[in-house]
Design a protein around this nucleic acid. Structure first.
Lengths: 336, 336
DNA sequence: CTGTTAGCGCATTCAA
DNA sequence: TTGAATGCGCTAACAG
């Protein structure tokens, strides 16, 4: 039924080895026979069996991609970009979703190894340095994206969160805001920590006090936006600007604003973190600190390809610079 | 380096065949030796090489999943659900994104076959019946989800779009609306056609005229919502309710409403199609006709597993019923 | 430049 | 119930 290399060899009247060389584009082959074999192969509809090739060469042309979920805009962009680029490079991607669960991640890693993926791009949970390092040890390069694994010598492509939050806060400061509310992720996550640090640094450099009442920490959920928004906006002296540095909570904040009948940016300036098509279509369009998910994905692919090409693990951490995207949700405060 | 079946056999002091049987849970094996082998295998860290197994058995335990993109909520849910369930069933999924492009889809299918996937769940572009049928012919079951391929005898799991639009329109009608605007996808797509038909039927059954001016057709894009929203709302006698039966255009409609300063549902009742977390968090929360993406995904997985288990292609089309999710964006019109 | 040969790791047929 | 032997389809020495 399926046409194999043997069939091609027979049809082209060459040995099976020659046929293999011809199709592989080997240099040590007569150009004429090469062309002939390729032609014959196409004629009889030959397609090389990647499974057999993988067994022999120990290269599956499959890579693993694990993300926490597909809802988060960054992860989604990562998945799209990685899939598209790897496919163009001749690789297929096995997608796995970890739900940010260490146990599930462990299972996934095992399975991926079983399927002998050539490499892995992972948004790690952070709790599985051992199996991840074991993969590296087994010569399966792994590139961490968006998140990293503390203490593990793995290449990681991260957003420059501290810088991003710093830039965002400075933007608001530059517009004359002094009381800037911050809604941010939990401090046991790198991004939560770093974004808070960026905010703090900008405030301090501006000679402003860092009022704990203006900072709301919470999990990466819409509910955090509701709680944080309500808390900050109920303050005796509410903030004039709100920096929502926890992407998932953005929608919750929007809801609070709508419920309170606040007008943006007249009543409140609003700055979000991580871009989403929704923010651009919102009226007024919402300014954001874009953490560059697409570029993280691109660099992750570049690094993986480089590793696949034989370059050693640098163990290095790469940071993708953030970009402030000014739209219409922040207004300059009148200088009183 | 890697521990193979041969190592297990040696360590357990049995033949390689016996080891294989033990690990595979074959019935023709002594229970004691079975247990022993399994134990030894675990002890020395054996993991069966899926590539070698695939070459031998012609079953890769890999399935393909192709979607147009990961932005559309339905496709995203499909991807999440299919991934999670197939993984739980011992399969890995190779994700491919077709961008709704027939040419890309053709390439994807070839590659998937090359990797000898055991089956395929596809949101088809609709233009590749031949290669899809060829897969079926090659004993690779394919299940179409959300979209179908006209004229091809492939199992398809679709939303009950005609019924959904009918239900949605009836809901609005029941609230007393008579002038109901419809923004819908292009008529060369099944869902565009069917949703329009559902709307038309409901209107006619209510003895109402179907005013072409109240119907805006357009591509699945936010811009369609802007154009459609503006067109319908600028009418001399604008609709009292808007049924946005083109998911992608929802965000555009929201923008128009915001720009026009319309209050929902006081000025306009709003009903969307296909649910999204955003709609629920919106204030007012937006009522929707939920087309059941998760259930489509679940049934697709069920059907695929059944086919993988040897059941023949029924060529049947399955429809997942729509569900009206009433929230706060539609109001009853006072009976004047 | 080309052909012969030997596995990659596993499942399975056939004998015992 | 077990073992020996075969080959899935391909690549890569090794000879010629």
């Amino acid at each position: 039924m399926t046409v194999t290399l043997r069939d091609v060899a027979r049809a082209a009247d060459v040995s099976i080895a020659t046929a293999s060389r011809a199709l592989a584009g080997s240099s040590l082959i007569n150009h004429a026979t090469q062309k002939h074999v390729v032609q014959v192969a196409a004629a009889i509809g030959y397609r090389t069996n990647t499974v057999a090739r993988a067994l022999k060469t120990r290269k599956s042309r499959l890579i693993g991609l694990t993300v926490h979920n597909l809802e988060n805009a960054s992860f989604r962009v990562l998945a799209s970009v990685v899939q598209a680029r790897m496919q163009a490079l001749g690789y297929q991607v096995i997608l796995s979703i970890s739900n940010d669960d260490a146990e599930q991640e462990r299972e996934i890693l095992k399975t991926l190894v079983d399927h002998s993926v050539d490499g892995l791009i992972a948004v790690p949970t952070g709790s599985n340095s051992a199996p991840l390092l074991a993969m590296e040890h087994a010569d399966i390069p792994v590139i961490c994206a968006v998140r990293r694994v503390a203490g593990a010598s793995l290449e990681s492509i991260l957003a420059a969160d501290m810088e991003g939050a710093y830039t965002g806060t400075q933007h608001l400061l530059g517009l004359g805001h002094r009381r800037i509310g911050l809604i941010v992720g939990p401090s046991d996550t790198t991004s939560g920590k770093e974004r808070l640090a960026g905010y703090t640094r900008a405030m301090q450099e501006a000679g402003l006090p860092v009022d704990p009442a203006l900072i709301h920490r919470g999990r990466y959920l819409p509910e955090t936006g509701v709680a944080g928004g309500n808390a900050l906006l109920s303050l005796a002296e509410p903030p004039t600007a709100l920096f929502v540095a926890n992407h998932e909570s953005s929608v919750g904040v929007l809801r609070v604003i709508s419920e309170r009948g606040l007008s943006i940016p007249a009543d409140l300036s609003l700055l979000f973190y991580e871009d989403s098509p929704w923010f651009e279509w919102q009226r007024p369009a919402i300014s954001v600190v874009d953490s560059g998910a697409a570029d993280i994905a691109n660099l992750a692919v570049d690094r993986l390809m480089s590793r696949l090409g034989g370059v050693a693990n640098s163990g290095r951490e790469y940071r993708i610079g953030s970009r402030l995207v000014e739209r219409a949700s922040c207004r300059a405060l009148p200088t009183s």
